[in-house]
Design a protein around this nucleic acid. Sequence first.
RNA 1: GUGGCUGUAGCUCAGUUGGUUAGAGCGCCUGGUUGUGGUCCAGGAGGCCGUGGGUUCAAGUCCCAUCAGCCACCCCA
Length: 414
Amino acid sequence: MNSLQPVRGTRDILPDEMRRHRVVIETARAVAARYGYHEMATPVFEFTEVFKRTLGETSDVVTKEMYTFAIGEGEQVTLRPEATAGVARALISGGLTQSLPLKVFYNGPMFRHERPQKGRYRQFHQIDVELLGVAEPLADVEIIALGADILAALGLGQHTTLELNTLGDPESRKAYRAALVEYFSAYRDELSDDSRDRLTRNPLRILDSKDKGDRQLIEHAPLFGDYLNQQSRDFFAGVLAGLDLLGIGYTLNDRLVRGLDYYTHTAFEFTTTALGAQGTVLAGGRYDGLVETMGGPSVPGIGWAAGVERLSLLLAEPPLPPRPIVVVPVGEAAQAAALKLTQDLRHAGFAVELGYSGNLKKRLQRANKMNARAALLFGEEELAAGSATLRDLDSGEQELVSLDRLAERLSRLA
RNA sequence: GUGGCUGUAGCUCAGUUGGUUAGAGCGCCUGGUUGUGGUCCAGGAGGCCGUGGGUUCAAGUCCCAUCAGCCACCCCA
């Protein structure tokens, strides 16, 4: 172990990459604001119970992926593996059930102890959107449309596909689950080890198995469609109608499932083929049973989460830092005045750099390296004239500009 | 957690059947300019060859372990 390298699965986000992250987050935030979503935050860690209860004792996340530690008095806390549980907890403990619907935008780090891969980290970042308190299909349509809009705003509309499924209401779901267990139990010995395990823990997941043998069995497995009651069919039809109306394309995928009991109705994923096995870029669904599971009132909800690292990997053009103006003092005499000039221009709203040392050539080289838009040469001649020499670093042209007209002149630079 | 591939300069990579001072391109620094960047020319710095052990007269090269990254599974953003 080398203590000078970051802990496995964690990484430094250096300025170039941070700019990509910011584009993702700020684009999402801006689009979400147009939909009426307000940003909030909850603590990075919660009592372990919050996640155990919402994600389910048997889920993979809870059984093997949580960072949990004791904090005296027998209390256990866990670094959040996802955002929804914290938001739901806040909804209850903050009395927000009195002001539904609650529409929140969220972003921050999450933690899961998984084997790292590209686009999969132990500390990673999600943007997250939740709509609580609306039971109508209109909410599903809105939340999916919001996701689609954000991906489009990031220029990823063509690179992602929306996959959609319904898990029905609890009644339909329960019936289907029972049918699946009955069907697969008959082939228990032919199932893969993983799927045999899923049979008890999470039978719906068998449908998503990549094992060849499982695949053959799955082909003849009962179909969810046959177990959906009328209410569930109507709900899903409402969602599809809304998406059609808005021109949002989708692919129905009846193998797209969620394991946990509180998930209901709509489940969806925006996927890409560009990230290998980490193809899911934005995913979510309806979770009408969640708040109640946590011990709150019955509040319907729907939301999604998107991986900031994954989205930023897909961004085509890495955003460039803003181009500064560089003040270049020439000679000792101008130093103090240059510092003052720099500060005045910053206060006037310009991004201004004043190198720390070096001769004229050195400073211009640095200005060039930071992709500066222009340099302001400032020496004894300029000092005496109450002016600065403005050098356009793109064209190489220079002109003498008096200090009182400088801000106005700089604002005309392209 | 399971299986596989890979670790050589800041970055991308070369390094022969094990053989003497480990190389290239890019980047970085200095100079060619007393007040003028990008281009060009010259010079320079920078390597516990991921880490630890082993085999050998000799290891960047072979073996073992370990750490890390990557790929697939599991699962997921």
